[in-house]
């Protein structure tokens, strides 16, 4: 079997044995969806809106697992493998850093997609949800957010000198983006000042993009979020591969 398939199979098993990603990337977004669904049922997002609150939030909820995998899972697993000197052992084999990073990237992408499918099914079956926008634009935005958030995580995991720094950075990235980017707490209910601050985070830009696509709104004002996401993705990916440290 190829290096990629064997590593993917094994690393996926190891990750599932760890349980934490199952909780943070699969269970948590589902719980938030169920709570919002129970509270808002199929009420409109605001008085006179032609879409429901849940439709407005769906685009945000699907990013929770991207965030959990990208800025918690990825950097922690990479820095753990470094501090446990597993990467040092890999260095005296022919495996490449790109392969090691890519396998982890695919694992967290699988978690995110599993979460997306689960959220969609539950929303449709239990909360009368419909994705009114274009699936094509929705998935385009979704994978762009994934790319840019994952690249941030790869960079942190690749460059953090030790596990402690990696976990501090992971927490500093994870919680503010989880709470203030609109992923859990809806952006629309935030006071304007907080919205301004939230706008700085790449995740907020990404969620705006997915929301516009999922609600089928006009595609103006999306150039900025797209540019921000793409630039972050390119810079972080290049840095993480160029400055990859085995030890």
């Amino acid at each position: 079997m190829s290096t990629f398939r064997t590593m993917l199979k094994t690393e996926l098993k190891l990750s599932l044995r760890g349980m934490d990603m199952f909780i943070f990337a699969i269970c948590m977004p589902l719980i938030v969806l169920v709570i919002l669904g129970i509270i808002y049922e199929d009420n409109p997002a605001f008085h006179g809106a032609d879409y429901t609150f849940l439709q407005q939030s769906f685009g945000a909820l699907v990013t929770i697992s991207i965030l959990a995998g990208g800025v918690m899972g990825l950097p922690l697993v990479i820095s753990e493998y470094r501090s446990k000197k597993i990467l040092k052992r890999f260095k005296v084999t022919p495996v490449t850093p790109v392969m090691i990073l890519f396998v982890q990237l695919v694992i967290y992408a699988l978690y995110a997609v599993a979460s997306l499918l689960l959220l969609y099914l539950v929303a449709v079956l239990f909360f009368n949800f419909q994705l009114v926008g274009s699936w094509f634009y929705f998935l385009g935005g979704y994978f762009l957010v994934m790319l840019s958030i994952f690249s941030i995580g790869m960079m942190v995991g690749g460059l953090a000198p030790n596990t402690k720094t990696a976990s501090v950075l992971a927490i500093l990235l994870y919680f503010p983006m989880l709470i203030f980017s609109g992923a859990t707490l809806p952006y629309e209910v935030m006071p304007e000042a907080l919205q301004r601050v939230a706008d700085i985070m790449p995740m907020t830009q990404g969620i705006k993009l997915i929301k516009v696509a999922s609600l089928g709104m006009e595609m103006d004002h999306v150039l900025l979020p797209i540019m921000v996401m793409a630039i972050v993705a390119v810079i972080c990916t290049v840095l993480s591969i160029k400055f990859f440290k085995w030890e």
Partner: peptide, 10 residues
Amino acid sequence: FQEAHYQEKI
């Protein structure tokens, strides 16, 4: 190597 390095649950 002198010390064994491996993933926790492998």
